[in-house]
Design a protein around this nucleic acid. Structure first.
Lengths: 145, 145
DNA sequence: CCGAGTAGTTGGGTTGTGCAACCATGGAGG
DNA sequence: CCTCCATGGTTGCACAACCCAACTACTCGG
């Protein structure tokens, strides 16, 4: 495969994938949208952060994050704590319920992916993962800033 | 990287990518949404097809496709021709304008991707492309049916 | 203490989507 | 021939996830 073709293919596949993923995610877990899941996952990963941090990290408008956070809090999955040093800030934490749901969804998503990737050689899997990380690791198309 | 971790990473990166892509696409080409672009591209690839074919291929509801097609026709990028053998069917074709716009957008998207992937060794590029194709080639999470 | 900047909320609007109800056509059997 | 069901497509309705702009409340450097 020539380099130009490869670039073309990567572009096409990533775009098509993008289109499909959201719909599929919604169907798999109606109780936790792709966005919510992503935010919850991020929160678990970093422990806690501010709404602004989420917005910056995912290139979302702060209003979007604000509404998502509101919904997640209303659902009891996260809580907002005041920041001792800055009254404007609300520090977001996963609740026990949030951690629980996140674990469930993560597991079922993981199972689905694992099934899909079942017949891949381990070496291909880790290389694929590595490529995706490398791709995501720098700005450009597909990252939104 | 262990297999489980690789699966985890692929899952995460693909999902995050999915979330970002649409926004980025919209910003890059306000005149042609990601969906429209995809449909136009498909049309160019296969020559012509019915709305139902598009719906099936992309796992979209026929109403969604219907609206997209209406918009694309109104924009003069595609045309609907009656099917000689079945009056219910409208056969979709790219117009000259559609072909033109598609070529432009494809080129600029390709340039952006190329830039993003500029420092990748050719071998990694083709392997990455191959993985994406393999991943897309079968049903499961990330395809929507 | 004032003005610029930052965190977050809210109002309003757009887009992409699915579902359900609908219309028109096609095709297979009485 | 009609009748009945399937199929291609459109439309009404609702919803989720966005963004932008305007706003409040707070922080911080002169």
């Amino acid at each position: 495969m020539h380099t130009a073709d490869a670039v073309e293919t990567i572009q096409r596949e990533m775009t098509v994938f993008a289109r499909r993923a959201r719909a599929a995610a919604g169907r798999m877990h109606p109780e936790l949208s792709l966005v919510s899941y992503t935010l919850l996952g991020h929160l678990e990963e970093v422990g806690s952060c501010r709404a602004t941090d989420l917005a910056a990290h995912y290139a979302l408008d702060k209003s979007t994050v604000s509404r998502q956070v509101t919904a997640l809090e209303r659902a009891g999955l996260i809580e907002r704590r005041p920041d001792a040093t800055d009254q404007r800030v609300q520090v977001l934490h996963l609740t026990q319920a949030g951690r629980h749901i996140l674990a469930q969804v993560t597991e079922s998503r993981r199972a689905a992916f694992r099934e899909r990737l079942a017949d891949w050689p381990a070496e291909d899997l880790s290389r694929f993962a590595e490529y995706l990380v490398r791709y995501s690791a720098r700005p450009g198309p597909g990252r939104a800033e």
